[in-house]
């Protein structure tokens, strides 16, 4: 890391700009919307005799897991990976390229890995401020609806979801370095994450899919939506999700590091 450029000041500047932008507003609205929907539609959803209702029946005596499953596995994991997290990074490099800004930025005394880390860390922070900023206080909205839900179980899954967002950010950053257009980057991220969430969505339908789902971080991020919280496993799964993410980050940095711009 370059010691003369104030890395924190750069990150703060970018994060602040992202938070107070159209994308920050969109992320905030989507998160609040999902939270409110999760808190207030849940009762009626659980009683409804639909497909979802059949699945809820699997945890008939566990309203806390019913909630966790519906809210995190059913909605949040998709929203986070397909929309919320990529929103903050899909145009990181492709945007700088198309706007021909990349030459100006990289002529500064920063290395290319630092440039990539600036994009990643500011996206992690902006996503974190909005996602955690909505979901953590959101517990007080949800708890009255689902009194059985403990704060620790809810927080643990929230943190794992945030880490799933970190995975999405690393993959979307790689996509952004590979393609030259913001639109293609967004569509490619959207397509890839829609595809990646499938094995996890299918794990309820067959044993084979459980094994396939284990090759995606989604499985580990949503594990405690159907299982009781265990501290050791929580830490292990958090590490597993980070390990899933790092190769994509490394590939993104390698890609940009060797490229003529």
């Amino acid at each position: 890391m370059d010691d003369k450029v104030d890395f924190l000041a750069v990150i703060w500047h970018r994060t602040y700009r992202m938070l107070f932008s159209v994308r920050g507003l969109l992320a905030l609205l989507m998160s609040v919307y999902m939270l409110v929907a999760g808190a207030y539609f849940l009762d009626s959803l659980m009683e409804a005799g639909t497909v979802t209702g059949e699945l809820y029946a699997l945890f008939i005596d566990r309203p806390d897991l019913q909630f966790q499953w519906f809210f995190f596995d059913g909605a949040m994991s998709k929203l986070v990976t397909i929309f919320l997290a990529p929103l903050f990074i899909f145009d990181a490099v492709s945007g700088d390229r198309t706007g021909e800004r990349i030459g100006l930025v990289l002529s500064r005394p920063i290395t290319r890995p630092t440039y990539m880390l600036i994009h990643l860390v500011s996206a992690i922070l902006a996503f974190g401020v909005i996602f955690l900023g909505v979901l953590i206080p959101g517990y007080f909205l949800i708890h009255p609806q689902v009194p059985e839900l403990t704060a620790s179980a809810y927080l643990a899954t929230t943190v794992l979801m945030y880490l799933l967002g970190f995975f999405a950010l690393c993959v979307a950053l790689l996509i952004s370095t590979l393609v030259k257009s913001n639109l293609v980057s967004f569509i490619a991220s959207f397509g890839l994450f829609s595809f990646l969430m499938m094995p996890n969505a299918l794990k309820y339908t067959s044993d084979v899919m459980v094994d396939v789902a284990k090759f995606t971080p989604h499985y580990y991020a949503t594990y405690f939506t159907t299982h009781n919280l265990e501290g050791g496993l929580f830490i292990a799964y958090a590490v597993v999700i980070i390990l899933f993410s790092l190769p994509f980050l490394a590939l993104a940095i390698l890609r940009i590091r060797n490229e003529d711009l």
Partner: peptide
């Protein structure tokens, strides 16, 4: 990085936000 501390660069074409 050290070399670029001494440099001010203006490309032929560039974008600004």
């Amino acid at each position: 990085v050290e070399a670029r501390r001494h440099v001010g660069y203006l490309p032929e074409s560039y974008g600004m936000p």
